[in-house]
Amino acid sequence: MSALGHLKIVSQLLDLPIIDKDERSCGIVDDVELEGRPGKEMKVAALLVGPGAYDGRMPAWLLWLTRQIAGDRMARVPADQIDEIGAVVKLKSCGEDLGLHQVEDKVRAWIPRKGAL
């Protein structure tokens, strides 16, 4: 958790791009999971990634539309996997290990692997 320290969740974490240790794009911080109680210290427990985390962040009709197009999958990145937060969130491990490349890998199977320089 040391990568997090004190931070402003909305301006310093939410909607930041996430890259893994190999510098591959892994999605965006769509929401965060907090732990703690009112009056006590709150901690970021995990980053939530994917359209399943849009709940409460957009009007109901837009959420419905988004779910029809993109589904409601969501990956959870435990806070101890965060290496650094700056212009992007860097992870300590590979996106695959955290289930962040499932859709990308599925779509990759459709693309022919020939002809490009």
């Binding site: 999605g27 965006i28 859709v103 990308e104 779509v107 990759r108 459709w110 692997r113």
Partner: peptide
Amino acid sequence: VSQFFGWEWGRHAKPWEAPRFTL
């Protein structure tokens, strides 16, 4: 669209290395 949703993107990579960007 790729940057907004955090997909792999770019044509420095081969088309199959950034599949959603290619699509």
